[in-house]
Design a protein around this nucleic acid. Sequence first.
DNA 1: GTCAAAATGACAGTATACTGTCATGACGAC
DNA 2: GTCGTCATGACAGTATACTGTCATTTTGAC
Lengths: 151, 151
Amino acid sequence: MSEVEPRTEAGDVLTEVIMRTFRLYGGFLEAAEVMTKPVGLTAAWWQVLGAVLRRPLPVSGIAREMSLTRQSVQRIADLLVEKGLAEYLPNPAHKRAKLFRPTAAGYEAISCLAQAQHAFTNRISAQVDLDDLRTTLRVLDRLVAALDSTP
Amino acid sequence: MSEVEPRTEAGDVLTEVIMRTFRLYGGFLEAAEVMTKPVGLTAAWWQVLGAVLRRPLPVSGIAREMSLTRQSVQRIADLLVEKGLAEYLPNPAHKRAKLFRPTAAGYEAISCLAQAQHAFTNRISAQVDLDDLRTTLRVLDRLVAALDSTP
DNA sequence: GTCAAAATGACAGTATACTGTCATGACGAC
DNA sequence: GTCGTCATGACAGTATACTGTCATTTTGAC
């Protein structure tokens, strides 16, 4: 039997952080569903639409930006087009990779959501210390980087 | 047109924290899949087995503890029993709610995973400041509480 | 210019977790 | 003890994201 590597104190804390991350993921996702429901969207649709607010992108580009698979984004994008919230444009630079962007209805839905999102984040963030929240963001950024650097 | 509520500075930071939370969820989940694969488990199985290491629980009790639905946990639990990693015991206190617990094989799989998990959390947590990590845990706890208190 | 490699979309299949519904067991008010 | 309510498991259906595979388009090495 080989030696058992003990967990460092930092490792213990990180383990707790990971468990909270899972809880928060579920909680934030649920909050997003609650916000999007009245507008006729879902959290996933919101996320995809939000990625092309500033400029059109091909589906594969959205996927890269969001760290999702092409296939997942493609499915949502097709649904959004079907619902009239987004559209495909011919891409002069690439015959297959059409450009994806919101329609006027899509932009309107997103602006309604911005309202709800502001109210939500303002309310929740008021319950924590701002400097601590900044520290948290910095730590999470470091953790994302640490995960990406060692796949 | 009604007034547009602006996002506070804390709200802005929280928005960034939420996006990192989604990224980290994906990253940690992937890391868990990598760790569980050699042992013949999945991340979800690991989580369910881990909930009954110390004492048996009925499926609905596990679900409550993990903030998941009964149905999701039931499906995993049945799979674990099918694979011989866990078993159902008669519950003297409740005829329907059988008690769920790991078998010897289940405990062995979990102890293998503990090894990989320790190495992982030790390595990742070494890249952040310990006090900052503690602050992060405290903030995440507050956020979980804030979400739970206003459904 | 040619051709291999990578990118892209399309299609199929799987895992996870959710909601909704129903029947049955447990529990408390009375 | 009875009855209404809640808890629990079972079953069905949906949403999201994943992997794998294939054909087509683009890109880059030569």
